[in-house]
């Protein structure tokens, strides 16, 4: 039966006109579990724009790109939950002008508000969908140097992209342990007393996340249940 909605199809559109391999998504793509569920936070346009920027940060090579590893799904989930709503962020006014970089984040927006308003402004600075890969990289670099909400947005998205690429897969990124496999990080089940001072080249154990099936199933359960994997 045809799905009414497909995250995979939405994100594939960003790659279509550009020569970037839209067909390069692996079969075990991040969206398998949640593909038929609309974004919790993003609009389709915002998701496509975010995927394009995230893939400038972490492009595809032998290892998946950011969006292929589920980073957009991760960011969507973060924005729809406590972090996006401003948990751990003091937002009492006033917000005087002239803040120094050393004084840290001084905008009046939660992360979700920052992404919504920041992406709207950023999209007016250029149509990333029509750019080729080098132009996209230049565009992201230029935005990151701006002394306005767009610059703050890029800093935030870079932080979120790294988190989505390397966090435990229960948060929907790091799909199939893409980030952990890339560097050789064995994950959450960690007991190294016997190895730490062996000083021998050793084979890194395969990654296992917090929710890794203790019976040995290769795929971790997901923070958002449902779907058919």
């Amino acid at each position: 039966m045809a799905k009414l909605y497909s995250r995979r199809a939405i994100l594939a559109q960003i790659a279509l006109g550009t020569g970037v391999a839209g067909a390069g998504f692996p079969v075990s793509h991040a969206f398998a579990a949640s593909d038929d569920r609309p974004w919790a936070f993003f609009t389709d346009d915002e998701a496509r724009w975010t995927a394009a920027v995230a893939d400038v940060f972490i492009p595809q090579d032998e290892f998946p790109s950011a969006s292929q590893a589920g980073v957009v799904d991760f960011i969507d989930f973060q924005m729809a939950t406590a972090y996006g709503a401003g948990e751990g962020l003091y937002l009492d006014p006033p917000f005087p002008a002239g803040a120094l970089a050393e004084q840290g984040y001084q905008l009046e927006f939660t992360p979700a508000q920052l992404l919504r308003q920041g992406i709207e402004q950023a999209r007016q600075l250029g149509d990333i969908a029509t750019m080729d890969a080098p132009a996209r990289a230049d565009h992201v670099e230029e935005m990151s140097n701006r002394d306005d909400i767009t610059g703050t947005l890029i800093v935030e998205l870079w932080k979120l992209t790294k988190q989505g690429y390397f966090a435990d897969p229960i948060y929907l990124g790091n799909h199939d342990y893409a980030g952990w496999r890339m560097v050789g990080f064995p994950g959450a089940h960690a007991y190294y007393t016997e190895r730490v001072d062996a000083h021998k080249r050793s084979v890194t154990p395969p990654p296992r996340g917090i929710a890794h099936d203790r019976d040995g199933s290769p795929y971790p359960p997901r923070a958002i249940g449902g779907g058919s994997d």
Binding site: E87, G88, L89, Y90, L91, D92, P96, G98, A99, L100, E102, Q103, G104, Y105, Q106
Partner: peptide, 25 residues
């Protein structure tokens, strides 16, 4: 600790306006 409940303001010297540490770092 939760900065929404308690935080501090920060500046490098007395000529600046201290601004809240809005997020831990």
């Amino acid at each position: 600790m939760d900065v929404k409940k308690e935080t501090l303001t920060i500046r490098n010297n007395r000529d600046q306006q201290a601004l809240p540490m809005r997020r831990l770092g």
